[in-house]
Amino acid sequence: MEDDDENPVAFSKSIVADYFDQADLTFKQMDEYLEKQDLKNISKLGHFLKGSSATLGLTKLKDSCEKLQHYGDRLDEAGHNRVSDSQVSLRNCKKTIEQARREFKEVEDILQPFYQDD
């Protein structure tokens, strides 16, 4: 572990790489839950991805995840008011997942040069 100190890049690289894998997986799971109309788990995944996105400083993605978390909790975007129609919540989730995916792709593209070689 101490070796990491001399290799901060390698460390952050591996962290980011793991994050990408994790996010890939999370998006897949989100799709599955969307299919099953499982709002609660979508919210959980939103929270999960929010944490790691925030840790890496990916704020846009973090914000989308937060929204997703609220939508999954059957709340409105800011998490203040309840949304009574679960179909509305599902639609919101779907929309936000797509948005998060786009943002994720953006991040991937930006960080790609950082990854493809040394």
């Binding site: 890049v9 952050s12 960080l111």
Partner: peptide
């Protein structure tokens, strides 16, 4: 690769400033 193979340090700044900004 092992979780943290060694490479020449260059671009750690990429991710951290944003984090600090947060």
């Amino acid at each position: 690769k092992a979780p943290a193979p060694r490479k020449a340090p260059t671009t750690q700044e990429d991710s951290i400033p944003t984090q600090q900004m947060d």
